[in-house]
C-alpha cells in the first residue's frame, strides 16, 4: 500500500506506455482489444442463432405434421422474387467483404463506395420483400388478419396454385396453411428487422467513413459489422430453401 496514494495515482496518469487513441484503457495491447471485440461479436451471433433456433424448431415440427399445407403454402411464394432477392443479398455480402478489405488496406474511397453499395443493396432487398408482402396482404394470406383459405380449398380460383396444379386441400389441412404463413412472416419479418437495424448502422458507418474513420488502422467496427451482415445473409440462405423451395424436388 503506497503511503501517499496521490503519487501512485500520478504515475498511473502519466506512467503507462503510449498507445493509439482508439485503444481502450483497460486493454494491455491493441491485439487483445481486437481479439476481445471480435470474440464478443461471435458470441453475440451465437445468441442470434439460438434466437432464430426457436422459430426453426417450430418450422420443423409443423412442417412434419402438416406437410401438404406447407407445400401448398410455398406455392404461393414467387420463386422469381425469392431468387432475385437471394442474388441481391449475396451481392451485398460481397460488397461488404470488399469494404472490410478496403478498410484493411486503408483506402477510404473504396470503403465508402462499398458501404454505399451494401446500403443500396440492403434497401433493394427490403423493397423486393415489400412487393412480396403486399401480394400476401391482397390475397388475405396474413395470419390473424382476415386470413382466407380460399386459395387452398379451391386452387382453381388462384393463379399461383393452379399453375402448380395443386389439388384442393380438405378444410382442416387448408387451415394449417395459416401456420405456414405465420412462420413465413415471423421468420422473414425477424430477418427483415435485422436488415433494417443493419442498414441504419451502415448509414452511420458511411457518415463516419467519409470523415476518415476505419481507414486509420482501427477496423474492428467495420470487421464486426461485416460479421453481423454475413450472419443475416446466412439466415436468409436457410430461409430461402425452407420457405420457397420446399416441394421443388418433386
Amino acid at each position: 500500500m503506497p503511503d501517499s496514494p496521490a503519487i501512485a495515482h500520478d504515475e498511473l496518469e502519466t506512467g503507462h506506455p503510449a498507445h493509439p487513441s482508439y485503444q481502450r484503457h483497460h486493454f494491455a495491447t491493441m491485439d487483445q482489444q481486437a481479439d476481445a471485440t471480435s470474440f464478443a461479436m461471435w458470441l453475440f451471433l451465437l445468441t442470434e442463432i439460438m434466437f432464430f433456433g426457436g422459430m426453426f424448431t417450430a418450422y420443423l415440427i409443423y412442417r412434419n405434421w402438416y406437410y401438404p399445407a406447407f407445400v401448398a403454402g410455398s406455392h404461393q411464394l414467387s420463386i422469381f422474387w425469392g431468387t432475385l432477392n437471394t442474388g441481391v443479398l449475396i451481392s451485398s455480402s460481397f460488397t461488404m467483404a470488399m469494404g472490410v478489405w478496403y478498410a484493411e488496406t486503408r483506402r477510404k474511397q473504396g470503403l465508402v463506395l462499398c458501404l454505399i453499395a451494401t446500403f443500396v443493396l440492403g434497401l433493394g432487398f427490403l423493397g423486393i420483400k415489400s412487393i412480396e408482402y403486399a401480394e400476401k396482404i391482397e390475397k388475405h394470406h396474413v395470419p390473424g388478419l382476415h386470413y382466407s383459405v380460399k386459395s387452398f380449398v379451391d386452387p382453381a380460383s388462384d393463379k399461383a396454385a393452379s399453375e402448380y396444379g395443386d389439388k384442393p386441400l380438405a378444410l382442416d389441412m387448408a387451415r394449417h396453411t395459416e401456420l405456414y404463413f405465420f412462420l413465413y412472416f415471423a421468420m422473414t419479418g425477424m430477418h427483415a428487422l435485422h436488415m433494417i437495424i443493419g442498414i441504419c448502422i451502415l448509414g452511420y458507418m458511411i457518415f463516419r467513413a467519409r470523415a476518415g474513420d476505419y481507414t486509420d488502422g482501427h477496423i474492428s467496427f467495420v470487421e464486426n459489422f461485416g460479421l453481423y451482415w454475413h450472419f443475416v445473409d446466412i439466415i436468409w440462405i436457410f430461409l430461402f430453401p425452407l420457405l420457397y423451395l420446399i416441394s421443388r424436388h418433386a
Binding site: A58, Y62, W65, Y66, A69, P143, G144, R175, H176, E178, L179, F182, L183, A186
Partner: peptide
C-alpha cells in the same frame, strides 16, 4: 392470434 400455440389452428 397467429396460431402457433393454438390447437384450433393446428
Amino acid at each position: 392470434g397467429i396460431g402457433v400455440f393454438d390447437p384450433t389452428k393446428g
